[in-house]
Simulated scan of single mutants.
Amino acid sequence: MDADAVRSDVDLLAAHVAGDPEAFGELFARHRDRLWAVALRTTGDPETAADGLQDGLVAAFRRAGSFRGDAAVTTWLHRVIVNACLDRLRAAKVRRADPLPDDLDDGGRGSVVTANDGSDEHLDPAEHGIRSERREIVLAALQQLPTEQRAALVLVDMEGYPVAEVAEILDCAEGTVKSRCARGRAKLSVLLRPLLDADTADDGDTRTAPVAGNPDASPDVGSMTRRGPPADPAAGAV
């Protein structure tokens, strides 16, 4: 086996800093899918996500020498990408105050709302359509949250990162991450009430749907939108 194939993330980043022309590309390819999923879910728009991902990759490429090893390379990469996406969102908010588009997928531009997880491959077309529609509803609701709350929820609930690692990525205290997640979940429980009520009715379940303001009873955003990025998420991003 080629020795490069087993190099660690730290080794690849160090090799890039030392002048290896292939190392950074290999590092990005290794984590491309997850970086794309985070960028897309944070921005809610494929074009903005691609721009944010490209901005972040350029920044990471140029600033690799500043990596000190006090966090995992993946944590550092996610921090750079998320910050780049948030910068894009803040800039867009200043330029315009348009409402969120009704169709986040925009006719199949590669949005994660139409991507499937492994289990979707075994669904009949009708069930697959229901899942895709539900993902679209959840992600549209996410876009109505403040950017900081959205970023925390994407990383914790959808990507499964520990709170401590998300705090490093977002450069804030763990308590701040927990607070942002709690407030975001409470808002989502209101925005997603019709979906939650429909699920309860379909299941014949008499349990009460999550109540706004009660984070412990909040919707399971992660289960509603499992990660499943497009086959070539980085197209045009580097």
Rank of each mutant, 00 (worst) to 15 (best):
G228D: 12
E127Y: 14
A14T: 02
V154T: 06
V138Q: 02
E148K: 09
G213I: 05
F24P: 00
E47A: 10
V113S: 13
V166K: 05
G107W: 14
S179T: 02
R7A: 13
P99R: 11
D202S: 15
A173F: 00
V112R: 03
V113F: 00
R109A: 05
H122D: 07
V58E: 08
G129A: 07
R95N: 08
N214L: 10
I130F: 03
D51H: 04
P101F: 07
E133C: 07
V138F: 00
V238E: 15
P229W: 06
D199P: 00
D220S: 13
G160W: 08
A23L: 09
R63C: 15
P233N: 01
D220T: 01
E133S: 08
R7G: 09
R30P: 07
L195V: 10
S119F: 12
S8E: 10
G160R: 09
H128P: 07
R63Q: 15
E174K: 10
L170C: 15
A14G: 04
T147M: 11
P230Q: 15
A235W: 11
R88T: 06
T206A: 15
H31Y: 04
T43E: 15
F24R: 08
S189I: 02
A92Q: 04
L192K: 01
E136C: 11
K178M: 05
D51Q: 11
A198S: 06
D45G: 08
A72Q: 08
A92D: 12
R88D: 03
P210S: 06
G204R: 14
L89N: 01
L27Q: 12
R90Q: 14
D98Q: 13
Q149M: 14
D11N: 01
A235L: 14
G213D: 11
R79G: 13
L142M: 11
T114M: 12
A209N: 06
G118T: 06
V163A: 13
H31C: 02
P125D: 15
D98R: 07
I169N: 06
G236K: 13
W76S: 12
D203C: 15
A212M: 04
P46C: 06
L100P: 04
N116A: 14
A37K: 00
A126R: 11
T200Y: 08
G52C: 13
G160A: 03
E127P: 08
D203S: 12
G204N: 09
V211G: 12
E47D: 10
G44T: 01
D98P: 00
G25M: 10
D220A: 11
R131P: 04
A126G: 02
S189C: 08
I130H: 12
R207E: 14
S223H: 10
H31T: 05
S218D: 04
D98W: 06
E26A: 13
